[in-house]
Amino acid sequence: MTIRITWKRVLLALLAIFAAGMAFAWSGLFQVAASSGHWKVTEWFLHWVMRNSVKTYSALQTPEVVRDDRGLVSAAGHFKQACASCHGAPGQRPNPVMQKATPPAPDLTVNARQWTDRQLFWILEHGVKYSGMPAWGAEKRPDEVRRMVAFVRRLPTMTTAQYRALTETTTVPPVTGLRPGLIESCAGCHGVDGRGRGPDVPVLAGQKVAYLEGALRRYAAGHRASAVMRVAAAALSPMEMRVLARHYAAMPGLRDVALPATHPILTEGRRDDQLPACASCHAPNKAYPLIAGQKATYVADRLTHWRGDEKIVDARKPSATMPVIARRIPEEQIEPLARALAGAE
């Protein structure tokens, strides 16, 4: 007996297959248990899809520069807080509980070699669906992702001592009003003296209390974009934010002094570019943070970040105060300006 294939029969067969699939899904017989893992073939297929996707999209969706080796301290500190429990770190095995996930997070001290910088950037920025890998904790902070790429790149060859040197500092005197371990965690990047342990970490010592406290609050709420500081600030109570702000503000460091005339933009601005002087807002009795003596690398990075992408049309560029001001600073003046500011104390 032969069955004649007609359009009607094909359609009915497809409908039957779909109905059977839905019935299977509805029955709950499909196991979502992580304990059983995947079949070998499923695992291969899923990873194959993931690798292809990363290869394709990392070529399409990444900026020109994807790695920044100048400052590793903030990336290392963030890795320790946010990544190490799943991925492990030099001298630290991944949390065994997290290793029971399907799929388990790869041990980056081994696995980081498999990816190019560009692919790492894409994975860090966007995360990976269905795998538990989250996207970067703040939007539009490619500078943070670039530093993390540089850090992850070094993981396979990093010794425990090197990792410790990046993430830990000498003994930190305890601060009253903070739970144990908190100030040590802050000092891992910001240093015992509040001056920051790398060129990517700003000087907090001597900064205004209200500014520091407000910054912590804005980081925690996500109003100020930074994955690194959001993770650090989200766990703080309002009281701890105040104690920390006072702690760093009380340290000797930045001073509330008039900006020196070491660069014309600091004290005069550029009228033809509609650029007001830095000292219009950053001076004694003004409402804005102290910047005299801040690190040149940090200042230049912030200004460059605020300038944003030159290719975006004006109407879509951010209109907040500093992005607007930073866009009026001639690009070649950013480095000299930051250096002049750093020398000012």
């Binding site: 601005g269 009228r271 509609q274 007001p276 002087a277 219009s280 009795n285 003004k286 409402a287 804005y288």
Partner: peptide, 23 residues
């Protein structure tokens, strides 16, 4: 006080005060 503290005088002028910017 807020006008001065927020740097409005960096761009705007008000006669009779220290604010004399012309942006």
């Amino acid at each position: 006080q807020l006008f001065a503290a927020n740097g409005c005088g960096g761009c705007h002028a008000i006669r009779g005060t220290e604010h004399d910017a012309r942006i």
